[in-house]
Amino acid sequence: MGVAAIHPAWEVAPAFITEGYSLEMTAKDRDALTKAAPHIAPDTPIAITFLPGETMDARIAAACHVRASGFEPMPHLSARRIASQDELAEMVERLTVEAGAKRMFIVAGDPPVPAGPFADTLSVLRTGLMETHGIKAIGIAGHPDGHPALDSDGLWQALDDKCSEISARGMAPLIVTQFGFDADPFLRWLTDLRARGIAAPVRIGVPGPAGIKTLLRFAAHCGVGASAAVMTKYGVSITKLLGTAGPDALVDALAAGIGAEHGPIRLHFYPFGGLERTVAWINDYSAANGARA
């Protein structure tokens, strides 16, 4: 299955680094999406997170809202938070029928003990529910900064196994990375990814503009490298926690560093400072840098 299964925009190389971006939202962000929608390109992929405090109905309503707003919903499924096969089947059926979802993003999830029969992404994939319900593409997580539960070899093996399983089931794999503050780990990871023969398209995770304390809080929660040296490179003094920061330096460095050898790449924005603020930043950056990025 080709890149068009992920999104038609992948068939043509982007003219500049922010072209063809995707966004993330929670079930609580429906009003924010309504306000930001006029400034988002039609058919933009929007991922809907699977947070423990949100109900199935709320997540499905958010996916329906994404579709009704003219964008492509990509709902998350968190394997270890799903209590049963029936619950998974109901979610997948409702998301495809009610929201017209054609793409899903599957992660193992944070709980150390699964709530039901699904311990990881592969166990969800092996139910066969995704392809049975017409899902065309599956997003999976990439970890350029590493993962606390797996060493490097384990991470690469898991990524390869998931890409192979998705492809074998007639769907297209898409790797979406955790966010980061430094372009260098992303570029090294992309080089290693392609050297290992993993050809799946990649979305690089970029933190949207937000308060510095907010960015550091998310970084600590997600295990993302945020040392003083990294944050200084990002344009933040770790000793000055007031104020806000945007990803200008990071996106500039990615634009300069990503080449044809890295394969198909787009950006995925985590709107820690809010959807409207993130979309405004993307549009401002694109207007100022699109011709040269």
Results as ranks from 00 to 15, higher is better:
E93F: 00
R266M: 03
T278C: 13
R67T: 11
P45N: 02
A101L: 01
K35W: 01
V176D: 02
S152H: 14
K102F: 00
G180K: 12
P52C: 07
L267P: 14
A99K: 13
R126E: 14
G235D: 12
K28R: 15
T44D: 04
A89T: 03
C64R: 15
T55A: 02
A68I: 02
G109C: 05
A79G: 06
K136M: 08
G100T: 06
E276M: 05
G70T: 13
I175R: 05
L275N: 00
P144F: 01
A108L: 08
T34D: 12
P264D: 14
H7E: 10
F118L: 07
T244A: 04
T44A: 03
P8C: 08
E98N: 14
R266I: 02
G20I: 05
Y234V: 04
R196W: 01
A249N: 15
G20R: 14
W156Q: 11
A226G: 11
T127R: 04
A256S: 14
S69F: 06
A79D: 12
R30G: 05
D43I: 00
A291M: 13
A63R: 13
P111I: 08
V66Q: 12
V92G: 10
S152Q: 15
E93N: 09
A37E: 05
H221K: 15
R194F: 01
R277I: 00
P117V: 02
S78H: 07
A210W: 12
A253D: 14
R94D: 07
D284R: 15
W189V: 03
G128Q: 11
P117T: 11
N289E: 06
L95E: 10
F179I: 07
V113D: 14
R266G: 06
Q85T: 04
S69T: 11
A220I: 07
P173T: 09
K28M: 08
D57S: 11
G205V: 03
I140L: 12
